[in-house]
């Protein structure tokens, strides 16, 4: 109970801190187009997000293929050097 009260007071004090002006963020700030933000990923219907996902999948598969390739190379070394 005591813990909850402390949390409650903390929250109240936080909100009063936010309301004192200097640190407040207004809803308009989110629509402020005069400030340049990193919006490439949101342009063109967010196609770049799809590009990033496809590339991640593709590169993951390729890295896996390369690791299989390396494992086989090691096996080849073991097997064929023993024989030869």
């Amino acid at each position: 109970m005591k813990k909850h009260l402390v949390t409650l007071f903390l929250l109240i004090s936080l909100s009063s801190f936010a309301q004192n002006g200097a640190y407040s963020i207004n809803p308009e700030d989110y629509n402020n187009t005069s400030v340049e933000m990193a919006d490439v990923m949101r342009s063109n219907g967010k196609i770049y997000v799809v590009v990033a996902v496809v590339m991640t999948v593709f590169l993951g598969l390729i890295i896996y293929t390369i690791s299989v390739d390396r494992k086989i190379s090691r096996l080849e070394k073991e097997v064929f050097s023993e024989k030869g």
Partner: peptide, 24 residues
């Protein structure tokens, strides 16, 4: 990975073609 130039070519071509297919 012996003689790996064509594997590099494969990866480069596929990255190019996926990007090109989605963005051009």
């Amino acid at each position: 990975m012996k003689k790996k130039w064509w594997k590099v070519l494969c990866i480069v071509l596929l990255i190019y073609s996926i990007l090109g297919a989605l963005l051009f």
